[in-house]
Write a protein that binds this DNA or RNA. Structure first.
Lengths: 209, 209
DNA sequence: GTCTATAACGTGATAGAC
DNA sequence: GTCTATCACGTTATAGAC
């Protein structure tokens, strides 16, 4: 996004290679367990270059964390604030698109959860998730249905816990679930794939319970 | 459990103090971020004593991890294998008792999830969770209801993902959920308290959907 | 068993040649 | 910009006195 220096090749520049490698390693191991040497190796560059471009491990981490956090919630916001889709339609879109997103980057939820715990106040300033979720078109539509008596479940926060839990939890607990079920990666993914269609049905049942 | 040395005072012995401190620190920070100095300070003992009793950080960690894992799944197993309670009754018991357990030790799920990811094969050998869950009375009762056509949901594994997700996810994602909702700790806990009664209702609705 | 002092090692960061 | 060599520091682990 920084165009003031006109990079020759945005994606293959050394700076980008380091950042991409850092993202991979930090997502997998978290800040504490990640070593700058791991990142340098992953990027195929010399360790000294990491400090040349980003000054310190912490600075590099903060950049990765902020970008991850923002892109992750941008995708939420775009669905939640679509004015052209109805309430149930949004649940379907959210389940389907979020599960696809998690298939491509399954470490992200755990990364965000862990690093937010170590740094609760930092990210809340830099991103307005609260607004993106609670002031969203989706939240408005929920309140209308609630007011019309079509929803009995007590409150939007419980609703969000349920929706997020059903979608995200299988990815967060994947290693554990695989070992207790004995499923292969392929079988496990197939199960989750079926949940794209099932979660909207279940959420509807919950709302009417 | 080791009675071959007849400890003078099982709970207040130096060895136990170190282990309890280690449990606290490891649960909160994970292996990589925890320092042996943190543990020694938490235990109120000298750093050298840690190595005197447990040889290394890693050995101490493995003991804590194994004990945590076993006690955590022992509580699951005791509910799942109660022959005197029915299927829906078990869901109620599980939701209520597990949420209480998580109130008292909220870091445990994230600890287990994170450390299992770093060491997938280790724990599966030492504990037979797979058997405790999939061969449980609870699983048998599920299969009977499924066979009788009283359950439409596709499969026990999906069912377990839903049940665990609804119960555990709010604790795992607590810091994130608090910041997006703006709830205080007390308000947040109050919401989760209501879920003890609601989750069984929701699970019933899901099964019949 | 418990302590102080210190060794041994790993990791983040920098100096300086090219 | 990129590399090699090295420093500085924090952390785990141990030696040895008491």
């Amino acid at each position: 996004m920084n165009t003031d220096k006109l990079k020759t090749a945005g994606d293959s520049s050394t700076e980008e290679k380091i950042k991409n490698a850092a993202r991979t390693v930090f997502h997998k191991k978290g800040f504490a367990a990640a070593r700058t040497r791991d990142i340098a190796e992953e990027a195929g560059i010399n360790l000294a270059l990491l400090n040349y471009y980003f000054r310190s491990k912490e600075k590099l981490f903060n950049i990765v964390m902020l970008e991850t956090f923002q892109s992750f919630f941008a995708s939420v916001s775009s669905i939640f604030n679509n004015p052209d889709s109805g309430f149930e339609e949004k649940i379907e879109q959210f389940a389907s698109r979020y599960i696809d997103l998690l298939f491509s980057e399954p470490e992200i939820p755990l990364f965000i959860i862990n690093e937010i715990r170590n740094n609760p106040e930092e990210l809340i300033k830099n991103t307005d998730i609260k607004h993106a979720v609670f002031q969203s078109v989706f939240a408005q539509q929920y309140k209308i249905l609630e007011h019309e008596g079509k929803i009995k479940e007590p409150g939007f926060i419980n609703f969000m816990m349920n929706l997020m839990g059903l979608i995200v939890f299988p990815f967060v607990a994947a290693p554990l679930l695989k070992s207790i079920s004995g499923l292969t990666d392929e079988q496990f993914n197939a199960v989750i794939e079926t949940r794209k269609k099932l979660i909207p049905v279940w959420m509807k049942a919950i709302l009417e319970a």
